[in-house]
Design a protein around this nucleic acid. Structure first.
Lengths: 334, 334
DNA sequence: GTGAAAGCGCTAACAT
DNA sequence: ATGTTAGCGCTTTCAC
């Protein structure tokens, strides 16, 4: 049986409320008694029961984190960032993996919502209405998704795409293919906007190659179509797709970067392990998780809609040049 | 404000206790009233407050999951297994990542322990004493680690290593190097036992190459020493190490599998994406997570030490042959 | 089969 | 500055 607040009170010879105060509002209690209480608590190994506290304060000290698929290395990074920051504030994290299922996602979110002070939804697949509904009932921070009126931390997709295009243009590329992600992906939609803007500014022909699963297999599937565009460089929805693409190109005997340059997005750990290593736009994944927690904490402390509505952080990507874009001053056609 | 049990009681025209019973012990309440209660609950979107329930039942309906490093793809797989199984039983999962820090691990475990019914510790780095101490205070299930008297789900390391050696022997290898994992790794220690047993039975020379970080960089670091042993094949602590090793070998112009064969352990997704693709021993990672939850649930239902002590599941690995062991009937020396 | 009452461990007025 | 009282939302005796 763990010690309760009453046990501490008895041992310290004070009332329960004094113990409560000594522990959560130390400033308001006499230094001497405070010491006595702390000693007693120490001796009993007292740990407040968070559930009981939550029952009365309405705060659980827990947050929920929902991600589409932990098997995609992008998400573990975000999770690590969330964890690390949450721990600093003594907040525990419920994690839920939706297996990329938009329906399951909403169910899980609803279930979690009851037990936490707030939720971080990372790259949610749910519809905008569903997300708004959830945001109505509970504190929500979005990561990698923007919904009007909901606090969010996103990546500067347009800026990232500009960097990728600028790099490729500098290497002489003028025909560039884009391998899109899932049709419902918010980031995919926004990346292509940035691509078109950059392409226009640079006199580049942009060739869309449709939508593919955000996976290795998706990249394998996209490769032939990307080649068929006649582009000299390909930008993909994410690194996993780029790596799948690399594999298929190799199988076909198409050399990267000699015949075709490839650029990914994310900079997952795997990207420096491929051959050739993958040029990519590094997204500050852990940082995003960390900031999401900070945003959520801010929302919890001040749930005033006026301050919060539209609160958002935008994180910038960083171009990481590796061998998959080599040096191709005279990019050959495959 | 979410609806409370009293709200439901009022709407259904019954007492709170009846509502409570109708929802948690449906059998014991009249069918008609039960229906009325359920209708009312439905209409109000009533969700029981788990914290309040936990306060009285002593059960939170939550479990904690602690892993060393989500960045190692092995762990997200286990986490997914845990999640999936926990969800089925309407149990929520707290996740903590210790960043491979044994001290932090114990701290985190202690903190989590207060808020959950039980803990799943995956590949814990803490000392046996610390783990025993924790297991004393709270319900614990270990994954990939064995401590006397603590329920655990482990992998059949010896069997896995036998398969790896048998495969290599069949290909003609007689000098095989082993790249070990962290000094404190339980599985590393047990894998080497299996290796020696299998090596003895097959007249194979086993060459230990020391201890390395369980990472890509660890594999890079190990490669040269592995080559220097004069072995014709290398087995590594895990796939990540094998992949790092592959990279370094390639940089040195050593061909795999022509000059040297490589076998990993785990079968992470990345292993089929390397060049050459990695032969490995597949560990049922998700399954391990799933079983860990089942074990924990069993412990919770029947905390009788006699039934539980020593409860354990052993999962078997499966050899996955890919190109990194090619066909080398006449394995050349590098 | 159902209701009334008590209380899980804690905090927050309200007194003092 | 400290103690007293009440109650968060729920389950569970104990009566009926």
């Amino acid at each position: 049986m763990p010690a309760t607040l009453r046990d501490v009170a008895r041992l310290a010879g004070v009332s329960p409320s004094t113990v409560s105060r000594a522990l959560s509002t130390p400033a308001v209690v006499n230094a001497a008694t405070r010491a006595r209480v702390q000693a007693a608590a120490e001796r009993l190994g007292y740990q407040p029961n968070r559930a009981a506290r939550g029952l009365i304060t309405g705060r659980t000290g827990n947050i929920g984190l929902v991600v589409p698929d932990l098997a995609n290395p992008f998400f573990p990074s975000v999770v690590k960032g969330v964890q690390a920051r949450a721990r600093q504030s003594d907040v525990a994290v419920f994690l839920a993996d939706t297996d990329e299922d938009a329906v399951e996602e909403v169910v899980l979110v609803r279930a979690l919502a009851k037990q936490v002070d707030g939720l971080i939804l990372c790259s949610p697949r749910a519809s905008e209405e569903d997300l708004l509904a959830v945001a109505q009932e509970t504190n929500v921070v979005l990561v990698n998704r923007l919904v009007e009126g909901v606090p969010a931390v996103t990546f500067d997709n347009e800026g990232g795409m500009r960097q990728a295009i600028a790099h490729l243009v500098a290497l002489g590329h003028r025909r560039i293919a884009w391998v899109g992600g899932p049709r419902t992906s918010w980031s995919s939609a926004h990346r292509i906007i940035g691509l078109y803007a950059a392409a226009n500014d640079n006199g580049v022909d942009l060739l869309e190659v449709g939508h593919f699963a955000p996976t290795y297999d998706g990249g394998m599937a996209a490769a032939d179509q990307a080649v068929a565009t006649g582009a000299t460089a390909v930008v993909t929805y994410n690194d996993l797709v780029a790596i799948g693409l690399l594999a298929r190109l190799h199988a076909r005997g198409i050399s990267v970067p000699d015949d075709l340059s490839v650029v990914g997005i994310d900079d997952i750990a795997m990207s420096r392990m491929t051959r050739p290593a993958l040029t990519t736009v590094r997204l500050p994944k852990q940082k995003a998780g960390q900031i999401a927690v900070e945003l959520l904490l801010a929302v919890l402390d001040d749930p005033d809609p006026d301050t919060i509505i539209g609160t958002r952080g935008t994180l910038h990507g960083e171009l990481i040049v590796r061998d998959s874009t080599g040096v191709a001053s005279d990019p050959a056609r495959p």
